[in-house]
């Protein structure tokens, strides 16, 4: 192998990327390709195909076209569960976006100016993001427990006892708990990312602008914001994907049924329940249809957000 490479390595000026022959390159890629192909690509393609067949337990039946998809929108409980869960995913996305781009951006901007304790603050804000979302969910479920939970205890201590309540037992408040806990956990990521983007803005530009008499709002609008667009784009896409894939936090806070009464149900829980807990004989067909729709939706919208952000980037500069 080395002999062939030796002979095919004359000086290649201006063509610097090549050092491996196709065959040698393939040998290097092969282990990853096999692993990726067997455990990711193949199951993914198979999962899409599952949704076009009728199933009896784990036995595949006839090709049924789009019937499984039709079931999702016309038959109970799916025709009610899907919109219900979908709205919750959207709330998660909107809530997390609002929180990250106000509180998160604010923290990052302030941190950018701070010299003392900067590392300390970064560490504090990032810690929850690294802890298992399942642990975070269970931790908050204990903290919000109606009788002995510290959250209600704090509220009573500071004289707000009236709003103390079973936060997770009340269908009105339960989904907001899920939204809050998720946004709270994720905030470390935008703080770091916006911080990195702010750090990349040369001080000279800001100084020159303020010497030219630009107000701080003008500087933010014309210098800081355009420089932040790529970071905002990344945060938006990842928040969208995260919100649509939400699973462990809702599972820990409301169980696989999305209790109380579906108030904390999300699409991934619905998929999981349909596939593994529904007991329906066509569980595989129906759940694969849910998976396919969710897959197309997540992928399509992520692409769309990326494209919009690229365009915004070009316009702002």
């Amino acid at each position: 192998m080395s002999a062939t490479s030796m002979t095919t390595a004359p000086r290649r000026r201006g063509n610097t990327g090549i050092a491996l022959t196709r065959r040698t390159g393939m040998v290097f890629v092969l282990p990853a390709l096999i692993l990726f192909g067997v455990f990711i690509a193949y199951p993914l393609l198979t999962a899409l195909s599952y949704s076009f067949f009728g199933w009896t337990g784990i036995v595949r039946g006839d090709f049924v076209g789009l019937e499984n998809y039709l079931t999702l929108f016309t038959k109970l409980p799916y025709s009610e569960d899907i919109p219900n869960a979908f709205v919750h995913n959207v709330l998660l996305f909107v809530g997390a976006m609002l929180f990250q781009n106000t509180v998160g951006l604010g923290l990052a901007t302030l941190l950018h100016r701070v010299r003392r304790f900067k590392r300390f603050f970064q560490t504090m804000y990032t810690l929850p993001y690294l802890v298992s979302p399942l642990v975070i969910g269970y931790l908050w479920s204990l903290m919000l427990s109606p009788l002995f939970g510290p959250v209600n205890a704090v509220l009573r201590t500071i004289g707000l006892g009236e709003i103390a309540q079973p936060w997770l037992g009340n269908p009105q408040t339960a989904i907001w708990v899920v939204v809050f806990v998720t946004a709270w956990q994720w905030i470390g990521f935008p703080v770091l990312l916006y911080g990195a983007a702010l750090g990349g803005i040369p001080e000279e530009i800001e100084e020159a602008a303020s010497l030219d008499g630009a107000s701080s709002w003008q500087r933010f609008r014309s210098i800081t914001l355009p420089m932040l667009v790529p970071a905002i784009g990344t945060v938006s896409v990842l928040t969208f994907i995260g919100a649509m894939e939400a699973f462990p936090i809702p599972y820990a806070l409301g169980g696989s049924q999305g209790n109380p009464a579906g108030a904390t149900d999300v699409l991934s829980l619905l998929f999981y329940r349909t596939a593994f807990e529904s007991g329906s004989s066509n569980a595989i067909g129906t759940s694969s249809a849910i998976a396919t729709l969710l897959f197309l939706f997540i992928f399509g919208i992520s692409m769309l957000i990326t494209w919009l952000m690229r365009r915004a980037e070009r316009k702002l500069f």
């Binding site: 990711i40 193949y42 894939e245 991934s268 969710l294």
Partner: peptide, 27 residues
């Protein structure tokens, strides 16, 4: 390397960063 084949393979791997691959759990 510089060839279409390797660029395609790299693109395939990178797509895994965005795709909700967990939905392939049944197969």
């Amino acid at each position: 390397t510089k060839s279409k084949l390797f660029a395609t393979l790299e693109g395939l791997f990178l797509s895994g960063l965005m795709l909700p691959v967990y939905l392939a759990i049944l197969p």
